[in-house]
Design a protein around this nucleic acid. Sequence first.
DNA 1: TTGACAGTTGAATAGTTATTCATATATAAT
DNA 2: ATTATATATGAATAACTATTCAACTGTCAA
Lengths: 120, 120
Amino acid sequence: MAKNEFICDCNAIHRDVVDNTSKNMLEADTFNRIADFFKILGDTTRAKILFALDQNEMCVCDIANVLGMSKSSISHQLGTLRRSGIVKCRKSGKEVFYMLDDDHVKKVIEMCIEHIEHKK
Amino acid sequence: MAKNEFICDCNAIHRDVVDNTSKNMLEADTFNRIADFFKILGDTTRAKILFALDQNEMCVCDIANVLGMSKSSISHQLGTLRRSGIVKCRKSGKEVFYMLDDDHVKKVIEMCIEHIEHKK
DNA sequence: TTGACAGTTGAATAGTTATTCATATATAAT
DNA sequence: ATTATATATGAATAACTATTCAACTGTCAA
């Protein structure tokens, strides 16, 4: 196999490892989805919102007060979470109550906390 | 309790829910750590690197070839992963071999893939 | 129907970050 | 010593994103 079948200009390639690993890689789209999922959790505000919603469904105003942030900011983030299918909402009069829409999120957050405690 | 003990200017607050949830919230620093952890996974390049390293330890050049990206770019990302304690490395001559340094990462990624499959 | 209020949304700003390029360091071979 | 190579790194650019502000929608009450 010629050197320039490989993208980068090194001689240090371990071809068997590279070939084998390449074969096992998932589709590009799958990695995008993985990254997108974690990107959602990778923001302090959203992490707080999800942790809070794990305890109670809440209206936008409640969440804003729990986090000490503006309603607009919270609403933007809830929009992001809703579009990702991680939270869902129900309307009741003027209020909109948000709740988790994903079992995995809870587990993933718990595992993450475990990780953090472990690394301390 | 006076209205302005709450941060935002709504009347729609459910005080018991807000008070209770507030009590159960973790420290700000903990949420920052949670978000920082997920931020690391929340990038396509880093997700690919971690998935690849889950199969074999590899040198920078190998990873660059598996991902089809420049060595410099990969090296920057490996630095980020190393500083986060998610990968570690060993030197062997001119080469530097990287490997996972965290059991949780594997589990978290697997759970994430499960989540993605489930939502399809 | 008018006013008040819960929530949403678009635009703007400010901060962050991934990649590239050029350069630097470290190791091995000649 | 000198050269080649593997990796690291600083600076710059470009792309992305969180929050704010202002304006808007929809609902309830008077």
